[in-house]
Simulated scan of single mutants.
Amino acid sequence: MKNFIQTGEILEVTAPYDVASGGGVLVGSIFGFAVTSAVSGDKVNIKRKGVFEHAKTSAQAWTQGAALYWDNTAKVLTTTASGNTLVGAAALPAANPTAIGRIVI
């Protein structure tokens, strides 16, 4: 195929804020987890497919398959849609309270 560029599983973006390796990165509607740490304005590779563990809104219970959103202010995953960006689904249930959840993107 002449127009194929890359798989897109790992994508280089400009870090919109300082991010540690494994941290969530949202650039417009593109979301992934940083492969390495980066400071705001630097290039960083993000992984856009797979199952990841990440901080979540502690006071929420997740069911497997629940829609998950990125809270770009708190830098956590949440089930709250309002004001947040849809980024994936809960790979496993998560109890209330727990600080970490698993997402599939």
Rank of each mutant, 00 (worst) to 15 (best):
G22H: 01
G65R: 04
N72W: 05
I100R: 14
S37R: 11
L92R: 10
K56W: 05
R102Y: 07
V27I: 04
T14L: 11
S58L: 03
A55T: 06
K49M: 04
L86S: 02
R48A: 05
T36G: 06
T7M: 04
M1A: 04
G28P: 05
N45H: 06
P93T: 15
G32Y: 00
N45D: 09
T63R: 03
I46R: 00
D18G: 13
A59V: 13
F4L: 11
V104K: 13
A81E: 12
N84D: 02
E9K: 10
I103D: 07
P97E: 14
S37M: 10
P16Y: 15
A38I: 00
S37Q: 13
K43Y: 08
M1P: 02
A20I: 11
F52W: 01
N45E: 12
I105N: 04
G50K: 07
K56A: 07
K49L: 07
R102E: 13
N72H: 06
N3Y: 14
S21P: 00
A89C: 08
A34N: 09
R48V: 03
A95W: 07
N96Y: 01
G32H: 00
T79L: 01
T36Q: 11
A81P: 01
A95R: 07
P93S: 15
T85F: 03
V104G: 10
S40D: 12
R48Y: 09
R102Q: 11
V104N: 14
G101W: 00
D18A: 13
V87S: 11
I100N: 15
G22S: 04
D18H: 13
A55C: 07
K2M: 12
A55N: 11
G50T: 05
K75H: 08
D42M: 04
A20G: 10
A89Y: 13
T73V: 07
V39H: 15
A66M: 06
V13K: 12
L11K: 11
G22L: 04
N3K: 13
S37W: 06
T14H: 12
K49H: 09
N3R: 14
T63Y: 09
K75P: 02
F52Y: 01
P93C: 14
G83E: 15
L77Y: 08
F4S: 07
K49P: 00
G8L: 08
G22A: 03
V51I: 03
Y69E: 09
V39T: 14
T80H: 11
W62F: 01
H54S: 09
K75N: 10
N3C: 10
T78G: 04
G83P: 05
A15Q: 14
K2C: 11
M1Q: 08
I46V: 00
G50D: 04
A15G: 15
V27R: 08
I5H: 12
V76S: 09
Y69M: 07
T57D: 11
S29E: 08
I5W: 12
K43N: 09
